[in-house]
Amino acid sequence: MGIKQLSIFVANEKGTLADVTRIFREHEIDIRAISVYDTVDYGILRTVVSEPEKAVEALAKEGIVSKLSDILTINPEDKRGSLNDIFTLLGDNDINIDYIYSFLVREDGSQLFVLKVNDKEKAQELLEKNGVEIIREL
């Protein structure tokens, strides 16, 4: 088990993000993390929400395509160079990072990072062995 991320197809049109957030609001789903990169015509909204399965269902009802996937979420030590250590470790072991985004947990002030890598199991094992905290539940 791990934290699930929702990938949602969004067209680059006025109001598409609000369409998604409105659905979350109506179904009382909380957004923990959100990320969209700049694209021309369309893109993928990545988000971590309070009830991912319920979110997929609510979106589908409104005709919005979304996909759930397991992602690697880490809580790196809050010290200079810790991300550099992590990226170097992954790189040295042939693990590629497709994308990364971070979010803050208000309750304890920790900053978590969501990583999409080409080999999640291997990355997780490697990071754990090297003392990086893996977050399995929010």
């Binding site: 990169y37 993928i44 395509v65």
Partner: peptide, 14 residues
């Protein structure tokens, strides 16, 4: 219209 969510794994797939 995109109907298959499997293309959302990466922007590259799209």
């Amino acid at each position: 219209e995109l109907i298959d969510a499997n293309y959302l794994d990466s922007f590259g797939k799209l």
